[in-house]
Amino acid sequence: MFFRFGAVLSLIVLVALTGTAIEKQILQLKRAITHQQYRLDVLLDSHVRLRLEAQRLGTPASLLGPLERGELPLERPTKPRRTDARQIPANALNQPSGTPG
């Protein structure tokens, strides 16, 4: 009788402990998912900030003037996106319109 009671009690305790362990594992996984989501948000935001900064540094508004005046050194890309040469260089045709053509 005592043995049976002990066995049932042990089983109940075992089930309860297993349940607690599973619950703990679920919570840990939840925490990990939340953490990953947070990290993803941070990385995404960081990506947006860096992209924005890169775009700001390379805006045509800030580069075009110095490029046309020859103040910025031009380095041609090794693999240009377009291979057809510009017949008139972008910064070589600076005379204003109105000259006879």
Binding site: R86, I88, L93, S97
Partner: peptide, 23 residues
């Protein structure tokens, strides 16, 4: 005309060779 000229050069719209020589 200035806008047009700059845009034509930027977009690589070929000028007329004869006209360049004439100019």
């Amino acid at each position: 005309a200035n806008i047009l000229r700059q845009a034509l050069v930027y977009l690589r719209i070929s000028p007329d060779d004869q006209l360049i020589r004439a100019a």
